Amino acid sequence: MKTILATAKAPAAIGPYSQGIKSGETLYLSGQLGIDPATGKLAEGVGAQTEQSLKNVRSLLAEAGASVEDVVKVTVFIADMEDFPLVNAAYSKVFTVNPPARSCVAVKALPLGGAVEIEVTAVVR
């Protein structure tokens, strides 16, 4: 059985997908761009987009009764690998203790011209 996760504290899906799914004890969050849900616009700059993306992730986790401590795997997509240090700096402020497993992949482009997109998998008990 799966439960659809949705919150107005993160941007609405911009396609035929859910913000997140809870199946059993596992949360699967769709990739979050650095979009401010209040304005519907991307934050300015890679660092700010990363911070907003992670804020959106935290909002979805909270909707499911979880937190960043429950995250077991993160995938970071960036449009330019040169931005990795900026992304990593913002990321390290959120995952400070016992960070989850992570992959970082440079992609040709992201939706809406975003610089970074972050998806996570978490386990809640």
Rank of each mutant, 00 (worst) to 15 (best):
L86Q: 07
V120A: 13
G31D: 14
S67G: 05
I4G: 12
T121H: 01
A64S: 04
A101T: 11
G65L: 09
A66C: 02
E117M: 10
E117V: 07
L86W: 04
D70F: 01
V68W: 01
G114I: 02
I14W: 06
S92Q: 10
V72L: 01
A6E: 12
P16N: 11
G40N: 10
K73W: 03
A122R: 06
S30G: 03
A115N: 14
Q19I: 04
G31M: 06
Y91R: 00
C104K: 04
T26R: 09
S92P: 00
E119Y: 04
P11L: 11
A38Q: 12
Y91V: 01
E117R: 08
D83V: 08
V57D: 03
D83T: 14
S92Y: 00
L27I: 15
A43Q: 07
L86D: 12
L27F: 01
G31E: 12
D36F: 11
D36R: 07
A6V: 06
V97H: 13
G31Y: 13
G24D: 12
A13E: 01
A122H: 04
Q32M: 08
G47I: 08
I14K: 08
L5G: 05
L110T: 10
G34K: 09
E25V: 13
I14A: 13
C104H: 02
G40K: 11
K108E: 14
A89W: 07
E44S: 14
V97F: 05
D83M: 11
V46A: 15
A122F: 00
Q49L: 01
G45M: 04
V76K: 08
K93M: 12
P85K: 05
D80M: 03
S67C: 01
T75F: 06
G47V: 06
D80A: 09
C104F: 00
S30Y: 05
V124I: 13
G65T: 09
A48H: 07
P111C: 02
S59C: 00
T121W: 02
A90N: 06
V123L: 11
E117W: 06
T26E: 09
K73E: 13
R102W: 00
A12R: 12
A66E: 02
G40P: 03
C104Q: 02
S59N: 06
G34H: 10
V123G: 05
M1T: 11
K22W: 05
R125M: 09
K9W: 03
I4Y: 09
T7C: 08
A6N: 15
P16I: 10
T96H: 08
I4E: 13
V74M: 03
G15V: 00
R58G: 02
L42K: 12
D80T: 06
A48Y: 08
T26L: 14
K9F: 04
I4T: 14
E82I: 08
G114Q: 10
T39N: 05
L110A: 14
A101E: 15
E44V: 14
A90D: 13
G40L: 07
V124K: 14
K9E: 15
